[in-house]
Each structure stands twice: as C-alpha cells, then as structure tokens.
Design a protein around this nucleic acid. Sequence first.
DNA 1: CGGCATCCACAGTGATACTG
DNA 2: CAGTATCACTGTGGATGCCG
Lengths: 217, 217
Amino acid sequence: MRSYGQYCSVAKALDLVGDRWSLLIVRELLLRGRCRYTDLLRGLPGIATNLLADRLRELEQADILAREDAPPPIATALFRLTARGEQLAPIVRELGRWGAPLMAEPVGESAFRSQWLQLPVELFLSDQSPDRPPVQIELRTGDEPMTIRAGGGEVRANSGSAEDPDLVLTGTPQLVIGVISGRLRLRDATALGLKCDGDHRALARVRAVSGRAQTRA
Amino acid sequence: MRSYGQYCSVAKALDLVGDRWSLLIVRELLLRGRCRYTDLLRGLPGIATNLLADRLRELEQADILAREDAPPPIATALFRLTARGEQLAPIVRELGRWGAPLMAEPVGESAFRSQWLQLPVELFLSDQSPDRPPVQIELRTGDEPMTIRAGGGEVRANSGSAEDPDLVLTGTPQLVIGVISGRLRLRDATALGLKCDGDHRALARVRAVSGRAQTRA
DNA sequence: CGGCATCCACAGTGATACTG
DNA sequence: CAGTATCACTGTGGATGCCG
C-alpha cells in the first residue's frame, strides 16, 4: 500500500496495518498463536494465496510477525506475532467491540470459523463468581466445537469438546454469539432455535451485565 | 470495498471502516468536529477529491457520519460523526497509540497539520496537579499554533495562540511530539533544536511518567 | 469559491493454474 | 505444503472540467 505521507501516528499505523487483510491476519495469529501457512489460509476464507504470501512478507518486514524455522518433528515454517505485533491486540479488540452490533444480522453467505468465537468470549464474558467451582460450557456451532472454561476469576475459550460440560449450546453462530455478547437472552435464543442442554446457570456465571453489547447498530 | 464475507465482528467492522482513507476521515471529524468538504480535503493531504466524495457517501450510508444542511449564515453543507461514528474513537486512539513509536523518525516528506497534535496531547498528557492554578503551553509547529490548557484535572488542546502562555515550544513537529509523547526529555529536545521560552515546570504539570511511549519501534 | 463528476494511467486484488 | 506465475478486473490518485 502507498504510504499516506502524513506525519500523524494514526496514519503511520495505517501505513503498516491498513492494508486489506493485514489486521485479519493479525487476528488469526492473536487467536491461534503460531500458525502454518495453510492454517492461515483456512482461517482467512476468501483470501487469495498470493495475497497471503504478500501480506506475510510485508508484516514480517514491519516487525509485526516473524517466520520461525520449524521445530524438528514438523518440516514446515511457522508464523507468530512479534512483541510489536501482539501490541496490536487492543486495536483488534476495539474493532471487534465496535463491530459486535453488526453480528445481529444472520450469517447468510458469510464464512465462519469456530476459533472466531474466542473474540466475543474475551470481550463480553468474565467470571462472576470466582470462588465457586469452575464450569465448562461447550459451544457446538461452525466447523468444530469450542469450550469455555470459567473458574478462579478467569474465562478462557479453547477449541475442542469439554470432558464434562455443565452446559452445551448448539445452534447457528448468530444465536451463539448473540447469547455470548448479551444481545440475546438465553430464553429468546432458544425460542429462535438454540439448543441448550444442561445447567442454564452456567451461563449466568460468565455473563456480565455491564459487558452487554448495544442492541442497535 | 468488497466485503470480507466473514461472520466475525472484526471483519464486519473492517467491511465498513477498512477502506483506504475511511479511518483518517473519522480522525479528522473526531479532532475537529463538524467540517466542510474543503476542511476535510485540507486536513487529509494526499486524498483525491473524487475519493473523498466516494468515502463520504459510503460512511454516510454506514451511519458513521451525517451530512447537515448548513445553518443560515453559511451556504454550505457540513459533515459530522453520528453517535455510531463517535464510537470509533477507541479504535482511532489505539491506532494512534500503537503508531506513536513510529513518530521517532523525522518528518521528511510527510505532510503535517497542527490539529493532529490533539491526538498525542489526549493520549499522553494529563493534569498532574489538579489543585494548582491552570497553565497554558503554546506549541508553534506546522501550519498554525496550538495551545494546551491544563487545569482542574483536565488537559485540552485547541488551535490558536495562548493569551498568556506559561511556556512556548517552537520547533519541528517531530521534536514537539517527541516531548509530548514522552519519547524525548525536554533537555534532549532543546539540544536537538527545540526552542523553549517560559517556565519549564508547566510541562512537568502535564506529563505523566506512566504515559510514556516506548522509545523503540 | 465550494462540491463534486469525469477521465485516465497505473497499482493493487482475486481466481486459477502451476511448481519445488 | 508453501508458495510463485499469470491475467482479468477493480480501486486509486492526479488532472481537469462543470455548475451553483
């Protein structure tokens, strides 16, 4: 991308990460950590392979990510964020927060990857009862299951099923995200088709009233 | 811009504000409030006039800004952010914070507008002695003077000269911003050519140690 | 003058095919 | 698996023209 040629830190930042796809590549690396080229390609549906290669080169030059020579068992290179790249997290987070109301519209033709659920989980959930025993909520939507684990004041989301879930939510990404972001109440979501097996109170454990997204776009 | 077609709030946000120039237009409206078309054109050196017209239309459609019919004395339309547009402030702020270390390199060919000083002032300064009488610092760099006023726990920056400045800083944007962002100490900046007339303690009044930008990019 | 629309050369994008 | 090569297409930026 051409430089904006403006002596302003916003413009200088956009000179480095304002390119199409650049911040979405950073999103993938923030959510998943180290990735192979193919993992990125799959996590960024719609990107052309030559563009991914271009962007990775540019972001590497800008010291935002680094290419690692593989550890012995694997015969491939890995991409990871540098310290400077990790500092982009607040930007991606604020973009995600601002964009949250836009998720009210149905999925439609949009592609979906379950790892993207990590973002609303981090943004909108927190452990409301740190002293009570931990809970697990399994989310079944998109390509693979995700599990939310809350306990000791922390909430984390990881891919994979829960061993012994307190609650399992099954349905479209729109409904699951609506519930997580606080745009939908659980009862409204179930009325719209969300399947909900287990102890409903597990959800109250992690949903902060203060963290609710606005309903209106 | 083409939609990313991803059901993720970051991607949806970038569908609306990820276009080239879009966030810089928002920056201008955040810093200056209501603007005429020509004000925006001058505040965005490098943009082509047809592109500005395009972007304004797109941002209006996205409910990020609105076109106001002029109040009687002026015979022109004004552009202002909507509530939804103002909510982009955290994104612009975080971009500015991330980009701050990039301002260490000299101005070079980059264009500069003194209103852009408002951003580092907001990001890095705060009133360290709310109970002492207010102070004024005049910044003379770029196209027109700016004045920082600190008092009662608040710090604000406005264009124009101060009536009775406690301190006047004159020099390149790089030096002035270096001092504001905490990357340069006042004595180092003066050694590099910053002119500094008045009471140096006025600067200590507003510079927070905690708010220092990193030196390294 | 303010607020665009039009035109054009060119750089960036995206789909597909191909390669070590 | 990790890209490079090719090519049609679209978006960008500079210049200029138009109109109230």
